[in-house]
Amino acid sequence: MTRPHTASGAVKALQDALCLERSLRASASAAEALQRYADERSAEGARLVGLGRRLGRALVENAPDWPAMGPAEVAALSRAALDGDDSYLYGSVQRQR
């Protein structure tokens, strides 16, 4: 299940439904359709859950001192939490080691 930090639950549900419909239409059996669906959607689901967990840890579990942070610190925290995932704010963020 996705965490609320990604704000993408409804979109993921719609994408999942469309994928399931395509899989059912293109398959000869329910088992084949479910395998197609899993092949297509499992990686994205795992990526989104991982992102939600990272965001939850960074923004809630290990919450910074928000009032003391300026724009640069907020941006750095966001980039670190995204950890390589795409974001409408930062594009593809590369992990810094």
Rank of each mutant, 00 (worst) to 15 (best):
M1K: 09
T2G: 04
R3W: 03
R3T: 00
P4L: 02
H5G: 06
T6G: 03
T6P: 01
A7C: 10
A7F: 08
S8D: 10
S8C: 10
K12S: 14
K12E: 10
A13I: 13
L14H: 13
Q15D: 08
Q15A: 10
Q15R: 07
D16L: 15
A17Y: 13
A17N: 11
C19T: 15
L20S: 09
L20W: 01
E21D: 14
E21S: 13
R22I: 02
R22A: 03
R22C: 15
R22T: 06
R25C: 10
R25V: 15
A26V: 15
S27F: 05
S29W: 10
S29T: 10
A30S: 09
A31Q: 13
A31E: 05
E32D: 04
A33R: 00
R36Y: 01
R36P: 00
R36F: 01
Y37K: 03
E40G: 07
R41G: 00
S42A: 14
A43I: 07
E44G: 15
E44C: 07
R47K: 10
L48P: 00
V49T: 02
G50A: 02
G50T: 00
L51V: 05
G52P: 01
G52I: 03
G52H: 03
R53G: 11
R54I: 09
G56T: 06
R57I: 13
A58G: 12
A58P: 01
A58M: 03
V60I: 12
N62G: 07
N62W: 11
N62A: 06
A63M: 09
D65Y: 10
D65K: 12
P67Q: 11
P67V: 15
P67C: 13
A68G: 02
A68K: 04
M69L: 15
M69H: 15
A72E: 11
A72N: 09
A72V: 11
E73H: 14
V74M: 09
V74I: 10
V74N: 08
A75G: 14
A75L: 12
A75N: 15
L77E: 00
L77N: 00
S78N: 11
R79G: 00
A80Y: 05
A80M: 06
A80W: 08
L82R: 03
G84F: 11
D85L: 05
D86Q: 05
D86R: 08
S87E: 01
Y88L: 15
Y88Q: 11
Y90V: 07
G91W: 03
S92D: 04
V93Y: 11
V93T: 12
R97A: 04
